[in-house]
C-alpha cells in the first residue's frame, strides 16, 4: 500500500562506492566460445554471397519469395519449394545514424544500419545491413540502393561479403 509505506527497501550505490572499496565485489570474466552451424538454408545463402549473388527460397502455397532463405515456411508450416536468385538492389525501409558502440563508446564515423527491402523478393522482405558512400543527412526512407560487393578474392561466405549498400538510380 503505497500511501501506508514510508520506508522503501533497496540501497543505492554510487560508482565511487565501488571504486573506493566501500562495498565488496567479486569479478568473473567468462570464457565462452561458440561455433555456430549455418544450417541448410543459410549455408547456401552464404555460399551464394561468396559468389556475389543473393538467393532466396520460394513457397508455392503462400506465393512468397523469402529472404533470408529458410527451408520451411513458418506461415504455411510446410517445406519451401525452390531456390530463387534475387537482385542485389533494393529500397531503404528504415535506417538509423548510430554514433555509439554497444558499450556506449562514441564512434569516429557514424554507422548507418538499415532495413533494406530486396528487389525480386516478396514485398516487405527485408534484411539488416549497412549503408555507405552516402552522407548521413542524405539518406531517406524509400531510397533505392545497390550492394557494394567485397572483391571476389576476399569474400568469405559471410553477410559482410557485401561491404555496404550505396545509393543507386535505376537505368
Amino acid at each position: 500500500m503505497t500511501v501506508n509505506i514510508k520506508q522503501w527497501p533497496g540501497t543505492a550505490l554510487a560508482t565511487r562506492d565501488l571504486e573506493q572499496g566501500h562495498v565488496l565485489t567479486v569479478k568473473y570474466k567468462p570464457r565462452a566460445e561458440y561455433a555456430w552451424d549455418a544450417g541448410v538454408a543459410i549455408a547456401r545463402y552464404l555460399e551464394e554471397l561468396k559468389a556475389g549473388r543473393l538467393i532466396a527460397r520460394s513457397c508455392k502455397q503462400c506465393d512468397r519469395i523469402l529472404i533470408p532463405p529458410r527451408m520451411f515456411c513458418e506461415e504455411c508450416f510446410r517445406p519451401t519449394d525452390s531456390w530463387v536468385y534475387v537482385e542485389d538492389t533494393g529500397t531503404v525501409n528504415t535506417f538509423s545514424i548510430c554514433h555509439v558502440r554497444w558499450d556506449v563508446v562514441r564512434l569516429d564515423q557514424p554507422q548507418l544500419p538499415a532495413v533494406i527491402h530486396v528487389d525480386g523478393a516478396s514485398p516487405g522482405m527485408g534484411i539488416l545491413h549497412l549503408l555507405g558512400e552516402v552522407a548521413p543527412e542524405e539518406v531517406y526512407i524509400g531510397m533505392k540502393v545497390k550492394a557494394v560487393w567485397e572483391e571476389a578474392s576476399r569474400r568469405q561466405g559471410s553477410i559482410t561479403d557485401i561491404r555496404h549498400w550505396k545509393p543507386w538510380k535505376e537505368e
Binding site: 538509423s96 555509439v100 538499415a114
Partner: peptide
Amino acid sequence: DHTTERALGPNLLWIFALEMNRYMT
C-alpha cells in the same frame, strides 16, 4: 541472428532507432 546479422556489429539501439524512424516517417 548469429550468422546473418551479428557479423554487421549491431547493438540494441539499432532496432529501436530503426523502429522509431519507421514509425515517425
